[in-house]
Amino acid sequence: MSGTLNNPSLKTGRSFDLGKMDLRQLWIAYLTYPTILLYFALVLASCFASAHFFAGWSKTLCAMVAVVLVYPVVWYLLHRYVLHGRLLYKIKWTAALWKRIHFDHHQDPHLLDVLFGAPVTTLPTIAVITLPIGYLIGGLGTAAAAFGTGVAITCIYEFFHCIQHLNYKPRSAWIQRMKARHVLHHFHDEDGNFGITSFVVDRVLGSYYVDAKARPRSPTVFNLGYDVAEAARYPWVMDLTGAPPRDRPDGARPEQKRAAA
């Protein structure tokens, strides 16, 4: 592969298109991406804080396990009922937030810089969920451990999320299945398969499906319900985009459409 767009470098000042990158290029882009570097630094800082206010191994591990168990449930609820909800784009003051954190990603699922959540929204969310859990278990030390665990899980989620949009077929069968389910979420019916690395909550709450035969294709899979008619009523996202909402992303490739068919 050649071309500046497909050569991950912070110096290009251009978006990375996962649909045109291979695994090696993804690793380079991921490990040099400012958001991920910030997350790594926060995980390290959390380790130091947890050690400084150490509450003992049992409480520390308990806080970490609690976050591991709670994280996918919280992610599911936010993803399904907030990011896929229609309230945020109907309010002028939250339209830009919704556009950045999810609409842009569904409009073009291959762009790396809109795939990663913005730290200004992601980190406060992680803090609100993890810090109280950790603090209640053992004070400041376990609060730091819980927060660091939440940020570390986010890094893992973000990497596998990239894999799911990458021009690459994983060797591992379980990663292939995970990627196939997420591709369905983006290219067949967005009202299902809300998980990233696990679909346990989807199974429990009835939003899991294994292939395109399980349900009809959604007409709003790329615009999340913010179509031209909605844009006329609530124009703020369209004004920020500079164009009407699209019914399919520019980066959709034939093989992805076949996978969702």
Rank of each mutant, 00 (worst) to 15 (best):
P72T: 08
G117N: 10
W93S: 03
V70A: 08
R100D: 15
A63I: 00
G56L: 01
A95Q: 04
R80Y: 08
S58Q: 01
P119D: 11
P109D: 11
V82E: 07
G85V: 13
H106M: 10
G56F: 01
F103S: 08
W57S: 14
V68S: 02
K99R: 15
K90G: 05
V120C: 11
A96D: 08
I91M: 09
V70F: 02
L77Y: 14
T122E: 13
W57Q: 12
G56S: 06
L61F: 05
K92R: 13
P109Y: 13
G56M: 03
T121W: 15
W98E: 12
A66C: 09
P119A: 12
D113Q: 14
A66R: 02
H110L: 14
G56V: 02
L112T: 04
I126E: 02
H84N: 04
L61V: 05
P132R: 14
H84D: 06
V74E: 05
Y89F: 12
V128R: 12
L111D: 06
V82Q: 05
L69Y: 06
T94C: 02
G56Q: 03
A66T: 08
W98K: 09
L112C: 09
H79P: 04
I129E: 06
L88S: 04
K92L: 08
V74D: 01
V120R: 14
Q107F: 03
D113G: 11
W98A: 11
M64P: 00
Q107R: 03
V74P: 03
W93Y: 04
I91C: 04
G117P: 06
W93M: 01
R86K: 11
L77Q: 11
Y81A: 07
G56P: 09
V70N: 01
R80D: 10
V70I: 10
H102F: 12
Y71R: 10
V73A: 02
V65G: 08
W75H: 13
R80K: 15
L115E: 09
W93T: 05
K92N: 07
V65F: 09
R100P: 10
K99Q: 15
P72K: 06
T125P: 07
R86E: 11
H110M: 15
I129Q: 07
I133T: 07
T94D: 03
L61K: 00
S58L: 00
Q107T: 07
A63C: 03
A127E: 10
C62P: 00
Q107A: 10
K92H: 09
L77K: 06
W75V: 04
V67I: 13
C62S: 12
L69E: 07
L61Q: 03
T130K: 04
R100S: 15
H102A: 13
Y89E: 04
H110C: 15
V74Q: 05
Y89H: 10
M64A: 03
D113A: 14
R80Q: 14
L87I: 09
A95Y: 02
Q107L: 07
Y81C: 09
G85Q: 12
T121M: 11
Y89P: 00
V67S: 01
G134Y: 08
T125I: 14
G85I: 14
W98T: 06
V114D: 06
L123N: 06
W93D: 00
G56Y: 01
V70Y: 00
P124D: 12
I126K: 00
W98I: 12
W93V: 02
F116K: 02
L77N: 12
D104A: 15
I101P: 00
V82R: 02
L69A: 14
A66E: 05
W75P: 00
H84Q: 05
T121Q: 11
